[in-house]
């Protein structure tokens, strides 16, 4: 129960309404530091909306999102502009429909991810224009980081090729590498295994485990591929129609009747029983 004792992210009473539609309704959960937390649920359950609230792309209607960094500082994510959530609070994300800089090379993609640090080192461009040595050193370090991540995701041989030319699975890995280049405390992955074949899924699992083990980065992921979810996650939160229906370890959630009902539906007799109850 690490997520209760040392949470990296605490979501409290999160509600998101779009006009009359309530996409997320009074959701509270915690993601443990160093855990791989999976957010699952049927299509349209509101998982991506939760992600967009955490990463600042939506401003939640109600609720509080607290991020606690390892070194102590806390951030209220719902009050921060989106780019600061990455830069200050150190939350990085990937997208369901991959959003790489397709016309830029793999290396450039990873360099853009280190923009803020480089920008400061370049003296907000003025120092960089005249070629300050401190900027050169920082740029070298950034290149080394980019190279390191390209090696980790197995794309180092294609560093100088455009990202748009990569195969689907490779693009997914590059997007994770790009998010990791921002040095996050919490990495949010929106369906990282979508469209991957079993071999690529296994590689992804290994990559995510490696990230957690070596860097201690906490991971929050949305996933439909249960083989990924059950194999790597320490903690699973299940959403249905914007509300939490189950929360626990993978094995606990797997046997929870409400989860089974949400995914597979319930036998007809039970529906009748419920209808009777409602009618009464």
């Amino acid at each position: 129960m690490r997520w209760l004792n040392d949470p990296v992210l605490t979501v409290e009473h999160l509600t998101m309404r779009f006009g009359g539609l309530t996409a997320v309704n009074d959701l509270s959960f915690q993601a443990g530091r160093g855990d791989i937390t999976a957010l699952i649920g049927p299509n349209g359950a509101g998982k991506t909306t939760v992600f967009n609230c955490i990463t600042g792309f939506y401003k939640p209607t109600e609720g509080m999102l607290t991020l606690r960094q390892k070194s102590g500082p806390q951030f209220l994510l719902e009050r921060m502009p989106d780019f600061q959530i990455n830069w200050k609070a150190k939350v990085a994300r990937t997208f369901q429909n991959i959003r790489l800089f397709q016309g830029m090379t793999l290396l450039e993609n990873l360099m853009v991810a280190q923009h803020n640090g480089l920008m400061i080192a370049s003296g907000f461009t003025f120092g960089g224009l005249v070629g300050l040595p401190s900027f050169r050193a920082k740029e070298k370090a950034a290149l080394a980081t980019a190279k390191d991540w390209l090696e980790r995701v197995g794309l180092i041989d294609r560093a100088d090729e455009p990202a748009g030319g990569l195969a689907y699975g490779e693009q997914r890995r590059l997007e994770i590498a790009r998010a990791m280049c921002t040095g996050p405390e919490l990495l949010c992955l929106d369906e990282p295994a979508a469209g991957l074949n079993p071999k690529e899924s296994a590689e992804l699992n290994a990559l995510l485990r490696g990230i957690r083990k070596e860097l201690g980065t906490s991971i929050l992921l949305i996933e439909h591929d249960m083989s990924v979810v059950m194999e790597i996650s320490d903690h699973v939160v299940v959403l249905d129609y914007g509300t939490k229906i189950s929360d626990g370890t993978a094995t606990e959630v797997k046997t929870d009747p409400r989860v089974v009902a949400a995914y597979l539906g319930v036998p007809d007799e039970e529906v009748e029983a419920v209808e009777m109850e409602v009618a009464r």
Partner: peptide
């Protein structure tokens, strides 16, 4: 320089830029 690379990244995908703290 970082600023020029950010311009091109902005042309490629603005939302991704914001997710990277730009």
């Amino acid at each position: 320089l970082p600023v020029g690379r950010a311009w091109e990244a902005l042309r490629e995908d603005e939302i991704a830029c914001r997710s990277l703290g730009i």
